[in-house]
Simulated assay, not measured.
Amino acid sequence: MTVKLSDIADQAGVSVMTVSNVMNGKHARVSKATIDRVLEIAERLGYVPNIPARSLAASRSHIVAALVPVGEEGSLLFSPHTVAVIGGVERHLRHRGYHVLLRGIERDDEIAQTIRGWSLDGAILVEFTDAQIDRIRIDGVPLVAIDSYSANPRTIGVRTDDHRGGWLAGACLAEAGHRRVMFAGPPYEGMGVVGQRWDGFRAACVAAGVDASKIVREEVLTSFEDGRALGLRLLRDHPDVTAVFATADVLAVGIMAGVAEAGGSVPGDLSVIGFDALDISGYTTPGLTTVAQDMDAKVAEVARIILDEIERGEGPRAPVSLGVRLIERGSVAAPRR
C-alpha cells in the first residue's frame, strides 16, 4: 500500500503541511524534535516521495543542472576544484529538496537544449570561459556562473578575489627574496580568473622591486600530468627561475613531482605556491604553500543564490566576490642561487 503524507501526519500528530515541509527540506519553522519524529515515521512506514507529482503541483521540476564543458567525445574528468564545487553545491541543494543533474556540454547550443529538455529550475555553470558565458542567450531560467567575470546580465557570477590571490602569491615569493619567478597557468583571454591572478601576481612582484622582465610565464593546462611535465624540464629550461606560482594546487603538486623526478628539490632548488587550498595541498612533502579560497562559503553562496532565484524570483544581481588568504607551509624558502 502506498504511504501518503497524511499517514505520516496521523502518526506524528502534526499537520500534513508540516510533514510536507519536513520532506521538502523546509525546516525553518519546524522544531528539530518534530523533524526527527516525522523522518523516523516516514522511514519506518517506507514512504517514497512522488517526485513527478510534487513537481507538477509546484510547477517546478526541483532539478538544478551542474553543466561542465567537455570536448567532443570527451568525458567528465574533473579537476579536484570542480569536484569540491559540485559536491558542495549538491549537498546544499539536496538538503533543500532539489536534485542535481550533472551534464557535460560539448556545444554552446546544448546549454539551452538541456535546460528546456529537462524543464530545469536553474543551472550552475562550472569551468566555462567568459567568452562562452557571454554567448548565452537564455531567459527565464536562473543561471549562476562559478568563477566568471562575464558581464552577461543573464548570469550571476560567484567567484574568488583572484587578483588579491595573485598578489598574495607574488608578495610571498618577493618577501622570501625571489627575484626571478614564474607564473604557470592555462592559456586565457581577457581578464578572467587566470588573467586576474596573473595581473595581481605581476603587480605584487613589481611593487616589491622585481624586474618585470624577470617574470616568466608558462602556459600549461591545469592537471597533475601537465604540471609534472613542466616540472621535469623547468630547472633545465629556466635555470635562473627560483620560484613558481601555479594557478591551481593540482598543477603545483604536479610541478613538485616533476622537479623531484628530475633530481631537484622543493624548496631547495625551487619554491612553489599553489591556489585553492584543497586537501591535496596538505598531502605533499613538503606541504604546499597555497592561496586559500573559502570553498565552503563559495558553494553555500552559489546554492543560496540559485535557490533565491528559483523560489523568490529576485532577478539579476551584482556578482559576488569572496576573500582569500595565504596558507604558508614548507614549499617556499629563500633562494639558494
Rank of each mutant, 00 (worst) to 15 (best):
G258L: 09
D199E: 14
F183V: 04
A207G: 02
V244Y: 07
A260K: 13
V193M: 00
T284C: 12
A212T: 08
R233C: 12
L230S: 02
V272L: 10
G268Q: 09
D199I: 01
V253D: 03
G254D: 03
G200M: 10
F275V: 08
F245E: 06
A257Y: 00
V206G: 02
P187A: 13
F201R: 08
G264Y: 03
D269I: 03
V181S: 13
F201G: 13
A208P: 10
A212G: 05
D226R: 04
V250E: 12
V244N: 03
A184E: 01
V206K: 04
V244H: 06
T284M: 07
I255W: 02
A252D: 01
D276P: 07
L251G: 05
V244I: 11
A208R: 14
R217G: 05
R233K: 14
G263Y: 04
M182V: 09
R228F: 10
T284S: 11
D269H: 11
S265R: 12
I280W: 00
D237M: 12
A212I: 09
L235G: 14
T284R: 02
R202Y: 06
D269K: 08
F201M: 05
S281A: 15
G185A: 13
A212M: 02
V250S: 03
V194Q: 01
D249W: 07
W198Y: 10
M256Q: 07
M256F: 06
V241D: 00
T247Y: 03
E218N: 12
V241C: 15
R228Y: 13
R217C: 04
L230Q: 08
T247S: 11
L221T: 08
V241Y: 10
R197T: 05
L270C: 01
T247D: 08
D237E: 15
R217E: 10
D269M: 08
G192Q: 06
V266H: 12
R217F: 02
K214W: 08
G195P: 05
V241W: 13
I215F: 12
A248E: 10
A257H: 09
V241H: 00
S265N: 07
G209N: 10
I273F: 02
P267H: 04
D249K: 07
V216S: 02
A262G: 08
D276W: 05
Q196Y: 00
D237S: 15
E219W: 01
P187F: 07
V241L: 13
M182I: 03
V259M: 11
V193A: 12
V194I: 14
V216W: 04
G209H: 11
D199C: 06
F245D: 02
P186V: 00
R197I: 02
H238P: 10
A207K: 12
E219P: 01
R202F: 00
H238R: 15
G190D: 09
G209C: 09
A260H: 11
D240C: 03
V266P: 08
V210N: 13
L235V: 10
I255P: 08
G195I: 03
V216H: 10
V250K: 08
T222D: 09
A277W: 03
E261Q: 14
A243Q: 15
A203G: 05
D276N: 15
D237N: 15
A248G: 09
L278H: 05
G192L: 01
I273Y: 11
I273T: 12
V250M: 07
L221N: 12
V259E: 11
G258N: 02
D226K: 09
